[in-house]
């Protein structure tokens, strides 16, 4: 995975503003439904959890299923608890990928 995840935030926010958080995660999100040219199922490989925290407090998180398209795009919002600038926003996003056995 050479590409870096992308995170987009407004440059500045006033206290009380509801800001939009946009993220793009480069990932194949292999659904486990597809077959290769020999007819073997391609194993499922997805990001299954995405979380967004503000100074350690959870803001937003998602449990992803294979029905999320490749390179998952996530858009959520956050109410600013203080005025902030984009290089000191205190926002942390994490994504977790786990290989699951097909049921």
């Amino acid at each position: 995975m050479a590409e870096k995840p992308r995170l987009k935030l407004p440059a500045e926010a006033k206290k009380g503003d509801v800001i939009e958080i946009k993220t793009l995660l480069p990932h194949v999100m292999e659904s486990g439904q597809r077959k290769d040219k020999d007819g073997n199922a391609i194993p499922r490989k997805i990001i299954n959890k995405f979380a967004c925290e503000f100074n350690g407090k959870p803001v937003f998180s998602v449990n992803l299923d294979p029905a999320i398209a490749a390179n998952p795009y996530m858009q959520s919002t956050q109410r600013s608890t203080r005025a902030a600038h984009s290089n000191s926003h205190g926002l942390t996003t994490t994504a977790q990928s786990r290989r699951l056995k097909k049921k």
């Binding site: 959870p58 998602v62 956050q78």
Partner: peptide, 8 residues
């Protein structure tokens, strides 16, 4: 999707 009050 999981939200919290500070999601706004």
């Amino acid at each position: 999707f999981h939200f919290s009050p500070i999601s706004g």
